[in-house]
Amino acid sequence: MDAILFLLFAAIAVVCGINVVVQTHPISSALSLVGVMGSLAALYLLLGGEFIAAAQLIVYAGAIMVLFIFVIMLLNAGKEKKLPRRLWVKFAGIPLLAIFIGIVAFVIQRMLPVTEGVKFGAMTHGNPQELGRALFNVYVLPFEVTSVLILIAILGAVVLASKEIE
């Protein structure tokens, strides 16, 4: 049952991921990205990370992607125009992509050798209490630094926007 669900959601994630690139209309691409986020949440759920799954759904699918769609709708972005591709791009593209993915997979395998297989529902330290404890005890410095970084980004955006208005 777990394996079937995993294959189903993995397939949905991959198909939606390809669809993000293939679609010409920004709204279709953004919605495909929502599909990727949703199926990733389902995969987290299968592994036993309920809180991470819910956070993925709320933050990415529910908030960030809604903002994306909001901006696309506000700008009323139309279909993108397709330029004719060069000949060597058409023929060499897919083999080059395959080689690139192969190299990345090889490097990852070398750097992080597989010690044991991943099991469904094996993640037992994913409940909110333990996550919160880890964030505010062990990883408090990276956590706070990241929040400051995001704050700086917000301030930068505000400064840039206010210049525009003047």
Binding site: V34, G38, L57, I58, A61, A63
Partner: peptide, 11 residues
Amino acid sequence: LFILGLSGVGV
């Protein structure tokens, strides 16, 4: 969280 997530996606 499930309810919050669904209400977010419902938009």
